[in-house]
Amino acid sequence: MNFNNLDQLYRSVIMDHYKNPRNKGVIEDGTLTVDMNNPTCGDRIRLTLDVADGIVEDVKFEGEGCSISMASASMMTEAITGEKVDKALSMGDEFSKMMLGEDHDITDDMGDIEALAGVSQFPARIKCATLSWKALEKGFKEAGSK
């Protein structure tokens, strides 16, 4: 069986995040909670964040979904912890570009998220990888409008 494509999709770093998720759980006294689901496939995610002075002090996630969506959430929490909200949002933009196969500016300080580049070869799975980033964007948007 030719698993070459799959090896790109399911790289060991991704499976590591899936099987050993970072920042899994809930921040009880967080400043921001956001839920998002993907109605077409049933994946769901809840992010809780502790944001102070425009900086993401802490973030946790919980949810249910495939390896790609859960690994992506785990990677995202590592990437954005300690970052400014604006920086976190722009990371999300760069991540979306990577998913669409466009030029992107993902740097080493963004943790493991580049490992998901192979997902762009599987169009049906892009929405799995972007679920947590979409949730983050929605959360910041809602917080901003309050």
Binding site: M1, N2, F3, N5, L6, L9, Y10, T40, C41, G42, D43, G65, C66, S67, I68, F122, A124, R125, C128
Partner: peptide
């Protein structure tokens, strides 16, 4: 979803979801 993706790489179309 992971299962359906792997099967798809083998040309097998199954439904995954709710």
């Amino acid at each position: 979803h992971d299962l359906a993706t792997v099967l798809d790489t083998e040309g097998i179309a199954v439904r995954a979801g709710h």
